[in-house]
Design a protein around this nucleic acid. Sequence first.
DNA 1: AGTCATAAAGTCATCAGATGACTTTATGAC
DNA 2: GTCATAAAGTCATCTGATGACTTTATGACT
Lengths: 225, 225
Amino acid sequence: MHSLSKINLADTAVEAIRTEILGRRWAVGAKLPNEAALSAMLSVSRGTVREAVRVLVSQGYLETRQGSGTYVVSTADTVRPLGMARRAGLRDQFEARLALDVEAARLAALRQTPAVIAGLRALLAARGPYAENDKTDFIARDFAFHQAVIAASRNAVLIGMYDFFSTLIAETIEATLGQDLPEPDMAAHVAIVDAIESGDPDAADAAVRRFMAPVLSALDRLLMS
Amino acid sequence: MHSLSKINLADTAVEAIRTEILGRRWAVGAKLPNEAALSAMLSVSRGTVREAVRVLVSQGYLETRQGSGTYVVSTADTVRPLGMARRAGLRDQFEARLALDVEAARLAALRQTPAVIAGLRALLAARGPYAENDKTDFIARDFAFHQAVIAASRNAVLIGMYDFFSTLIAETIEATLGQDLPEPDMAAHVAIVDAIESGDPDAADAAVRRFMAPVLSALDRLLMS
DNA sequence: AGTCATAAAGTCATCAGATGACTTTATGAC
DNA sequence: GTCATAAAGTCATCTGATGACTTTATGACT
């Protein structure tokens, strides 16, 4: 329970600047005071200001142009959403991933081609049934299949976010559950591909939800106990 | 089209370290070399190493403990997903937000209470019909309603991500479209609340999709031209 | 031997100053 | 009025130093 009492200067500077941006006091397109001025305003060294600014650049708020200055490029908060996701409960994380999964499957159905379907079936064949002895590899092959389903949506945003949530969920399970969740059988996997191939987004939607339902139930039981 | 030729040292350092983490060469829980060693390994100054490390801390990969060292805490890539979202097309952004919107509405239906429904209707009443003269305020009130719908899902991840995408989409429209998208009428808004109140997730799902369909069509027409 | 306070070493946090690279603005000749 | 050039402004990076905090080693004491 680390309260906010022990916070370092650079993070304080980040929050101070972020607050100015989110409060629209430095609007999009505006130029920030130079490093020396910020240093004086925040009463920290220039090095600390640079660390803070670089963090905000990496988060998409600012842009620095050597020789010119530092500018606000966006007020969209990229950090809170996924930072929040990191600290959220497993149930919330699953629900978010399911949202992406379902929408990706719908789009995949609308945009499916024979080549993509063939690729999915090939991945499913390579995945094979579960075997106790090569658990790590099996998980990797299984993940490759699911990634390919998302990729079939041809939506870069969904693809990127799905990757993030998958990794995050794996880590959260490792850290909090200490137990595996049930893995749907081959028939459930095939049903998703079939639904996408049919070109019917509602069918794809339903297939994914049927796929995930038992996993969510198992999760709820584990979180109860 | 800014190629990778002109990249600064700190970003290079960030990528170098991130690659090590993502490649599992520094596993979760592992301790990184100290700043002086990293400085030598990457052939950059300690200050530059600190900027890189702080970026990775802000992205959730690392954790620094004063007096102890720097440790890997996660391999989940938080920066690519939303960074990708930022550079993605408006269509992709809309589809991602729709995914969140639909799932949130489903959960809201499952978890609805009379108090929440009353709150939604109050927001809708306060929002009122569109009036040309107070466009800015109207948009704020409209956004407050939609936020409340998402909040009714009681899923922190969905709430955070929805905020992000809403801001992002607004900025992308401003930057690329230079034209507003059609705003669904009051009936469409009421339909969402009614569906949530009914407690039927499928109805809520459908209401949101009906709500968004004309907006997406208009977007496609604009992107075509 | 075991315990425990203390010292020492290791590491991050922060500051100060300096130089280089790049961009923007001002200057002045033509 | 145009345009090459100089000057000023600003970020990028390096070097060196000090402080704060944590971990480990030491050694006295029981």
